[in-house]
């Protein structure tokens, strides 16, 4: 039950885009049509789902204050939390690079549709943000970060596909010249964010 609650919450209430505005750069750049948005969204789900639990394990057993207790009592006082940013980003970058190499070699068809998005993802705030929120929230077992990662990824996917659909329709409307393109997109996302705020009151 708690997992379902966390899952729903991370998609709608804690939506990476509408509640935190994470991963906006690629969100705005790659949402011109639904097809590419789809590809980037799937790639985000994939990377988030793998890197977040890896970082959880590292955080729990290496980085937290006192996390090295399993090495012996003399390590109980060690606090490596100042290294967490660097470890998280290194895990993400390395994961993305490895996946890129594997996909390029063994699944060329997938690479041609998804591969171009992978380098973009290493610097996507929502991936690092996911890991940082995981650290802040202090999940007790490996189950939560897995569910949270999946939920946040789906939330991000949902957001980018919705925006892409709106932008496809919007290209037919008569927007004032200075607002065309980015300007109106910002305002659209703002309005979508307001709509998503209705989920904040739900109790699970």
């Amino acid at each position: 039950m708690e997992y379902i609650s966390l899952f729903v919450k991370s998609i709608f209430v804690d939506n990476m885009i509408f509640a935190y505005f994470l991963g906006m750069c690629s969100y705005l750049a790659v949402s011109k049509n639904v097809k590419t948005a789809n590809g980037l969204g799937l790639a985000v789900i994939f990377v988030l789902f793998f890197t977040l639990p890896i970082n959880w394990v590292l955080n729990t057993y290496v980085l937290q204050p006192g996390a090295l207790k399993w090495l012996g009592p003399q390590f109980a006082e060690v606090d490596l939390s100042f290294l967490s940013f660097i470890v998280f980003i290194a895990v993400i970058a390395a994961f993305v690079q490895i996946v890129e190499m594997i996909v390029e070699k063994y699944l060329p068809s997938l690479y041609s549709s998804l591969g171009i998005f992978l380098p973009l993802i290493a610097v996507n705030c929502s991936i690092l943000g996911g890991s940082l929120f995981m650290q802040q929230r202090d999940f007790p077992t490996l189950g939560e970060p897995l569910v949270y990662a999946l939920g946040s990824g789906i939330g991000w996917y949902l957001a980018i596909v919705c925006l892409a659909a709106i932008r496809e329709k919007m290209s037919y409307s008569n927007v004032p010249a200075p607002l065309k393109g980015v300007g109106i997109t910002f305002i659209t996302v703002g309005l979508m964010g307001m709509a998503f705020m209705i989920f904040m009151g739900i109790q699970l």
Partner: peptide, 27 residues
């Protein structure tokens, strides 16, 4: 104070910036 307003405000700043500097407008 709520986050969505920041986006709308940013949209308006872009609007003003591009109305002033026409070279930046998108087609």
């Amino acid at each position: 104070i709520l986050p969505p307003f920041a986006l709308i405000l940013l949209g308006c700043i872009i609007w003003a910036h591009r109305a002033w500097d026409k070279d930046l407008q998108e087609k």
